[in-house]
């Protein structure tokens, strides 16, 4: 009963090509699960299946052991993507408060929550009135994170949230994310390309290749007991870049 979300034989194909082979995965409550693997291996597909942006060809998704109602589920889930996906016609504040306003939550409550989130994500209050185009990439990701956190979701999904940022900003945000996840005991599923980031943030690292999960465990597990040739190659390749 420690898994918040459970994928059972979940699969997806585009035409002839299988983007995701029938896959089983448990996303542990209160932990950060990181999906990693080469480009095109099906990481984004897996995330999009969970949030219902794509419909699966087979299998099912269980939330707290039950089948999900997608509309209700989406409101208990936050989703952050690489470029933030912020709405350009709304200010930072407008983006963050969009859903709580839509659901008719009391303004005062929302305003208080927004203040807390600004502190949590280290986003300057003064910039709340700016439009996405007036913010830096890092600031945009912080707004995107606030928007995802606004309704206190049980699950946070990230698809390469830091992919487009420069190394310094990226390192800063990684630290902040780790702290936020720990403080909120947040259940997180995060996609990254970067093994160091996976190692730093992930409690459980899930390595994928060609639409299937090849191995999962801690970074030490993957390094010490690679399941096959691919795993060791993948880990060594990233290390080679790191220490070249």
């Amino acid at each position: 009963m420690s898994a918040l979300v459970e994928l059972v034989d979940l699969s997806k194909r585009y035409g002839e090509a299988a983007a995701l082979q029938p896959t089983n995965l448990e996303i542990a409550r209160g932990k950060t699960t990181v999906l990693i693997g080469p480009s095109g291996c099906g990481k984004s597909t897996l995330l999009r299946l969970i949030i219902g942006l794509t419909t699966p060809d087979g299998g099912e998704i269980l939330f707290n052991g039950d089948k999900i109602d997608i509309d209700a589920f989406r409101r208990r889930t936050g989703y952050v993507i690489q470029e933030g996906g912020l709405f350009p016609h709304l200010t930072a504040r407008g983006n963050v408060l969009l859903m709580s306003r839509h659901l008719g939550k009391p303004e005062q409550e929302s305003a208080a929550r927004l203040r807390d989130l600004c502190q949590l994500t280290r986003f300057p209050d003064a910039l709340l009135g700016r439009y996405p185009l007036e913010l830096s990439g890092g600031q945009r990701q912080r707004v995107s994170l606030m928007r995802a956190l606004m309704l206190s979701p049980e699950l946070l999904l990230f698809d390469e949230p830091l992919g487009a940022l420069d190394p310094l900003v990226r390192a800063g945000l990684q630290r902040d994310l780790k702290e936020i996840f720990a403080r909120l005991h947040q259940t997180v599923l995060l996609v990254t390309h970067d093994l160091a980031e996976a190692a730093y943030l992930g409690d459980n690292i899930v390595l994928m290749n060609e639409g299937r999960i090849v191995q999962q465990g801690s970074i030490v597990d993957l390094r010490e007991n690679p399941a096959n040739e691919f795993v060791s190659e993948f880990i060594n390749a990233q290390r080679a870049v790191l220490f070249a």
Binding site: G52, L53, D71, R74, R75, I81, G85, H102, R147
Partner: peptide, 11 residues
């Protein structure tokens, strides 16, 4: 990405 975000938010 804008469409995906709008959908994923639960609108």
């Amino acid at each position: 990405p804008i469409r995906d975000s709008a959908t994923a938010l639960g609108l």
